[in-house]
Structure formats: C-alpha cells, structure tokens
Amino acid sequence: MSGNGNAAATAEENSPKMRVIRVGTRKSQLARIQTDSVVATLKASYPGLQFEIIAMSTTGDKILDTALSKIGEKSLFTKELEHALEKNEVDLVVHSLKDLPTVLPPGFTIGAICKRENPHDAVVFHPKFVGKTLETLPEKSVVGTSSLRRAAQLQRKFPHLEFRSIRGNLNTRLRKLDEQQEFSAIILATAGLQRMGWHNRVGQILHPEECMYAVGQGALGVEVRAKDQDILDLVGVLHDPETLLRCIAERAFLRHLEGGCSVPVAVHTAMKDGQLYLTGGVWSLDGSDSIQETMQATIHVPAQHEDGPEDDPQLVGITARNIPRGPQLAAQNLGISLANLLLSKGAKNILDVARQLNDAH
C-alpha cells in the first residue's frame, strides 16, 4: 500500500501541473516587456503551470559599433537563445518575429505568432524639431536608422535628408537623439515604442507609400524545439490566425527572394473581405531603383483552434497545428507568387547589386 502511495506522490510531482516552463529572452527592456506579455497570456491559459524567465545577451546586443547589415552573420539576435533551447536550458524563446530568419536551424520551429501590433515605422524627432515631419525637416538634416530597408525607401522619398546608421537598443538610440546634436530624427518601429509606453515620442507614423515595413514587423514569434510536442501544444494558444497568415505570406515572399538583413526588402499586408493583399518591394541601397507589386488571394481566416493538420510540417519556419492547413498554404503560395513576379521584373539584379555594395563598404 505504502509503495503505491509513493508512486502516486511521484506521479503528482512529475505531472504537468508541477512543471516549471523556462522562457528565454534577450536582456533589453523591450525584450523583457514583450516576454512578460507572452508569459502573462500563458499564465492565464495555464494557471497550474509556473513560468521562469531567463534573460541573456546576444551577438546583436554586444556589437554596437557596426551596422547590422555589415556584421555579416545571420541570427544576430537569436543564436545564443537557440543555443540555450538546444541544450534544454529553456523550453521556449520569445523573439520579435522580424529577427527570426525565414529558414531556422534544424530542430527549431516557430510554435506561435502572437497578435500583431502596429507594424509601421515611426519617426521620433529631436526636441528642437518636435512638430515637424520628415518632409518639413531642414535641408541636409541627419536621420538615424539601423535599417537598409528604411534608408533606401526614405532616401527616395525625401532626397533633402541624409540617413546615417544608429545602433543600440531603444533606450540607447533615444538617448543619442536627445543628448547629442548629430541626429534631427530617428526611425523606429511603432510597436516597440508603444510597448515601452513611449507613445508621446511618436512624431509621425510612416504610411506604406512612404515606407513599407519589415517582414514580420510588429509581431512576436515564440520559438521552440520542433519535436517538443508538449510545448508546441502549450504555445499553440498564442497563435493569432490573421497575423499568422499575413506573416506566412510575408516570410514566403522574403524567403523566395532570398532577402535578408543586408538587402532592402519591404512588405505591406492587409486582410479585407476574405482577401489577403500582399505588397512587396525591393530597392537599391540608395533607393534610386525599385520594383513594387501587389497581389491578392482569397483566404478564409479560420477561428482559433479549428482542428489543424496533425502532421505539422513547417511552413517558412512556422508550425501551427491548430490552424487549418489550406489557408496557410494559400498564404505561402501568395508570397511565392509575388516573389516570382518581382524576380521576373529584375528584382534579383537589384538585390545582387545591393548585396555587393553593402559587402564592399
């Protein structure tokens, strides 16, 4: 009898209710805020589980004197976190989706994509230029951005401005803007500013005609071990179906173009009346040469937790077992079709030249 009692006690200790789920994140304040929001949602869904947040620095956090596009290494903000995932030191990792490459290392998958916040870019102005827009900034004003995508589009749109690289986390960039006289304004992701509670610093939100956004911008991705079915089931509740389908289309477009950090590629997606609209573009580094096109596809946005595919093969690095396969494939095909259209119009040449120029500098 006593033996059975011990077995029952052991089973209770090993039951999922007692389990601590370890969540990996970057150390920056924004990353911690984003991770806290994901953990809060998981806690609400699984009140019996405990969650421990483990923060670590990544290569991208450490190399702050070089433009991201020049470092010449993929997975700048993800490699150390993936290493911890691989060694079973954490069970899942919360990322900004735009930091996750469209091809993940073997053994990993994006197990959830959370509801997207505003994906557009924002302009934050130096205190002396508050009330201005990019259009009304004085001639030769210097605007800071760490992104080739932003610089290429904005140089084309605002030729009277000069664009220079600015690195560091959000706090560091804002301090550089406010305390030094080098920059009249800087460009940042609206979602990051909003998550930090800095709505009052948003001086201008850039519309798609001015600057399309990065693939996955404004959404959070939760990376897990691809074979860890328990954790895949656990994080599945975080999937937002519309965000998922938009981001599958965007990531398929980028992957098929073979774009990345070192080339200016941008997108804009919208879901309306059962249609998914995808606009994508590529630019030369100075913005003088560009190709942009829009395509659409009829896609039914499923309700969360309709029964999805059981075999769960990944699409552009994403596993969404609780979302039907048909809409996911339709979104992926839309991204591939748009990429093929741009490639047929000469996108590869623009991107190759951009890559060579970026590598040469």
Rank of each mutant, 00 (worst) to 15 (best):
Arg167Asp: 05
Arg116Thr: 04
Gly317His: 02
Val130Gly: 07
Val130Asp: 15
Cys114Arg: 09
Pro324Gly: 06
Lys227Asp: 15
Ser57Arg: 11
Pro302Trp: 13
Lys227Tyr: 15
Gly281Val: 11
Gly281Pro: 01
Thr41Gln: 07
Lys98Leu: 02
Phe163Glu: 08
Leu64Arg: 09
Glu179Lys: 08
Gly197Glu: 05
Asp61Leu: 13
Ala320Leu: 09
Ala303Leu: 15
Asn118Ile: 13
Val143Gln: 04
Leu220Asn: 03
Leu177Val: 12
Glu162Ile: 11
Pro313Ala: 14
Leu177His: 02
Val38Ile: 15
Ile63His: 06
Val38Ala: 08
Asp228Leu: 04
Gly192Phe: 00
Glu250Arg: 01
Gly281His: 05
Lys128Glu: 15
Arg325Lys: 08
Asp178Leu: 11
Ser75Cys: 14
Leu174His: 08
Val39Ser: 08
Gly203Arg: 04
Asp230Tyr: 07
Pro208His: 12
Asp286Lys: 05
Ala252Ser: 03
Val202Gly: 10
Leu220Asp: 03
Leu64Met: 08
Ala151Ile: 06
Pro324His: 14
Gln314Asn: 14
Leu188Lys: 00
Asp99His: 06
Asn358Arg: 15
Ala331Arg: 01
Gln217Cys: 03
Pro127Ser: 11
Asp312Met: 08
Arg251Ser: 05
Leu85Asn: 01
Lys70His: 10
Glu209Phe: 15
Lys128Ile: 12
Ser141Val: 09
Ile248Lys: 00
Val103Tyr: 00
Ser290Asn: 07
Trp283Cys: 07
Pro106Lys: 14
His268Arg: 15
Asp312Ser: 02
Ile323Phe: 10
Cys211Phe: 14
Ala84Gly: 07
Arg195Pro: 03
Leu85Arg: 02
Gly218Ser: 01
Ser344Arg: 15
Ser57Asp: 15
Gln229Arg: 12
Pro324Tyr: 07
Cys247Ile: 00
Leu68Val: 11
His199Gly: 09
Gly168Phe: 03
Ile53Thr: 07
Ile186Asp: 05
His83Leu: 14
Cys261Ala: 01
Gly111Ala: 05
Ile323Leu: 12
Leu338Ser: 11
Thr133Trp: 09
Asp289Phe: 13
Ala226Ser: 08
Asp307Cys: 10
Lys79Gln: 10
Glu82Tyr: 03
Lys227Phe: 03
Met295Tyr: 15
Leu254Gly: 00
Thr294Ala: 06
Leu76Thr: 11
Leu285Cys: 07
His199Gln: 05
Trp198Gly: 08
Asn322Thr: 05
Leu351Pro: 10
Ile54Gly: 06
Arg173Gly: 02
Val282Ile: 06
Ala40Met: 14
Ala214Ile: 04
Val123Phe: 01
Lys43Cys: 08
Ala226Asp: 11
Glu293Phe: 08
Leu100Asp: 02
Gly131Ala: 12
Thr66Ile: 14
Arg156Phe: 05
Arg173Trp: 03
Arg325Phe: 14
Gln356His: 13
Gly192Arg: 01
Met295Gln: 05
Pro47Ile: 04
His120Tyr: 13
Lys348Ser: 13
Thr243Leu: 00
Leu148Ile: 14
Lys115Arg: 11
Thr41Val: 05
Lys98Gly: 00
Gln194Thr: 04
Val265Gln: 02
Glu52His: 04
Phe163Met: 11
Val124Thr: 06
Gly60Val: 10
Leu161Lys: 09
Ser288Lys: 07
Cys211Met: 15
Ala330Leu: 15
Asn349Ala: 15
Gly335Pro: 01
Gln204Ile: 01
Leu206Met: 14
Ile54Ser: 07
Leu220Cys: 10
Lys87Asp: 13
Ser290Ala: 01
Asn349His: 04
Pro47Gly: 07
Arg225Gln: 02
Val267Glu: 05
Pro138Asn: 11
Leu174Thr: 07
Leu188Met: 09
Ile113Cys: 11
Ile110His: 04
Gly111Pro: 03
Ile231Leu: 04
